[in-house]
Amino acid sequence: MSHTAGRVSVRVPAKINLQLAVGALGADGFHQIGTVFHALELTDLLTAAPADSLSLSMTGAESAGLPADQGNLAWRAARLLAEHAGIPAHVEFAIDKRIPVAAGLAGGSADAAAALLACDRLWQLRLPAAELTALAAQLGSDVAFALLGGSALGAGRGERLRPIEGGARFSWVLAVAHGGLSTPAVYAELDRQRGPDQARAASDPDAAVAASGVLEAVASGDPELLAGRLANDLQPAAIALAPYLAQTLAAGQDCGALAGIVSGSGPTCAFLARDQAHARTLARALEDTGVCRQALAVTGGDARATVLA
């Protein structure tokens, strides 16, 4: 299989979880979840070029301190795809990092998805979408959704996806925290809070999400309706590990958000706005409070992975 002569650039969106129901800890050490993923118009840019080895460099506002070796999901994605195709993992990655790190926004998963798409094009593999999705699921729970984008119902560990047809666009403000949170640590805290019998775990996370009305709210496009459907089983655990999140959520409500939620395992808080103008006003007000490092007005619901070259 020959390499192409040119470069391939890919943008893949961040995500938030509009609902996240977490089941009991399984014997395999993982939790089954039911969730509604929602892709945001906030992206990293990954560029892949032909090379004689595998290398990775990063620039951008959110690149500080990130690994540029096998500790990076994009690197691991290239290795996995090359092994699957039976070819050397020869590619040079350059990532312009804009998605906040360890923030509950799946920035690492977005980069892994971008690497799969870019290398598939660069190496002229032309793998079917289902094959790329299966590889994505091996890399992490959110990588498959990063390939899909839009809004989708997630099951299993998040890798089993059903697109929400006709899902509407919504306006959000992301309150980016000064620090990060470890996803495994947040899940461990959730298990500690629930106790040995796991009595407070969702017995059927998929059914919990389906019964909540969130799917209908997403399809309706009505932010007032969606505001009453946002929920996250991980939020109490994230607040326990990062108590300042309670202050951030309260500040968002005080500034006029329709609703607020910790995104995924945190520590980013996502605030729902009526429209883009409201989101811009809300972002300025939140930044003025000083409760977050940055407040970003974004839209979500139809963002997709985009191959630029």
Rank of each mutant, 00 (worst) to 15 (best):
S2P: 15
T4R: 15
V10K: 00
P13K: 10
P13M: 15
I16L: 15
A21E: 04
L25E: 11
A27F: 06
D28N: 15
D28W: 09
A39R: 10
D44K: 09
A48G: 03
A48S: 01
A49Q: 14
D52C: 03
M58V: 04
A61T: 14
E62L: 00
G65I: 06
Q70N: 13
R79S: 10
L80C: 12
E83F: 10
H84N: 06
P88G: 08
P88T: 03
V91E: 05
I95C: 12
K97S: 02
R98H: 14
A103L: 07
L105I: 07
A106F: 13
A106C: 12
S109I: 04
A115R: 05
A115Q: 10
L116A: 05
C119G: 09
D120C: 02
L122G: 04
Q124C: 13
R126W: 04
L135H: 13
L147T: 08
A152I: 07
L153V: 15
G154F: 11
A155F: 01
G156S: 00
E159V: 06
P163F: 01
G166V: 05
R169T: 15
G180Y: 11
P184Y: 01
A188Y: 00
E189M: 10
Q193H: 08
R194M: 12
R194N: 07
P196C: 09
A210D: 01
A211C: 04
S212F: 00
G221P: 08
L225N: 03
L225I: 08
G228S: 01
D233A: 15
L234T: 09
Q235K: 10
A237C: 02
A242I: 08
A250F: 08
Q253H: 12
Q253I: 13
Q253Y: 03
V262A: 11
V262P: 09
S263P: 08
S263L: 02
G264T: 13
A270D: 02
F271E: 08
L272G: 06
A273E: 05
A273K: 12
H278G: 13
A279C: 03
A283G: 02
L286V: 10
T289D: 01
G290A: 08
V291E: 12
Q294L: 13
L296H: 04
L296M: 12
L296F: 05
T299H: 10
G301M: 08
G301W: 06
R304E: 07
